[in-house]
């Protein structure tokens, strides 16, 4: 049901812009990049290092219905979450994670010294929130993703995780981008 339920928002669009300002609305959705961390791959690496790439198309996957009418795309928020880790040994393992896009890599997020454990949703960046964990350069890279989404381009994410020791199980890192499309109608 990508063809989502805009209920009356659609009315507004459909009335083909009767007001002086036309019609303008925002469509916001969380688009998620899911990284599967493999215990076997991590533990078989002498440095306990794991990396992977993943190519996504947020425009076509999450905003197919609206992207054609979008005037701009903004990423308002970035969060991450660790899921499905089973700490059988009880050992404390730390990790550094990085997330970037493209080649050469444009860094979006670096987080160091995290305990490997299941977490709730952790805020990495939010527009206007001073608690952001992103540098100015990383925020600029994040903002450029909006243009790529608007252009319906594939985005290749480069993710890596560097562990201090072996890990006990596979687990998942979910990076969620709050993507807002500004849709306009005449």
């Amino acid at each position: 049901m990508r063809k989502t339920l805009l209920l009356l928002s659609i009315v507004s669009l459909a009335l083909f812009g009767c007001g002086e300002a036309g019609v303008e609305l925002d469509v916001t959705k969380g688009s998620t990049v899911t990284i599967q961390i493999s215990r076997n791959l991590v533990n078989s690496d002498v440095d306990n290092f794991f990396s992977t790439t993943q190519t996504v198309n947020f425009a076509d996957d999450d905003f197919e219905e609206y992207i054609g009418d979008a005037e701009s795309v903004i990423i308002d928020k970035l969060t991450y979450q660790f899921k499905d880790y089973n700490n059988i040994s009880g050992d404390l393992v730390l990790m550094d994670i990085t997330l970037g896009t493209g080649s050469p890599n444009n860094s979006i997020l670096d987080v160091f010294g995290l305990v490997v454990e299941n977490t709730g949703t952790v805020l990495a960046y939010e527009t206007g929130n001073p608690e952001s964990a992103l540098s100015a350069a990383q925020i600029a890279n994040l903002e450029s993703l909006g243009n790529q989404i608007l252009a319906r381009q594939n985005i290749t994410f480069n993710a890596s995780a560097d562990f201090t020791d072996d890990i006990d199980s596979d687990f998942v890192i979910e990076f969620t981008f709050d993507v807002t499309l500004r849709v306009t109608g005449e």
Binding site: T4, S9, S12, C18, G19, E20, L25, V27, T28
Partner: peptide, 17 residues
């Protein structure tokens, strides 16, 4: 869970026209 967020519908703005 929230699937999507969309602006509420706007009015025609007739009195502004």
């Amino acid at each position: 869970e929230e699937l999507i967020r969309i602006s509420a519908p706007t009015g025609l703005g007739i009195d502004e026209s």
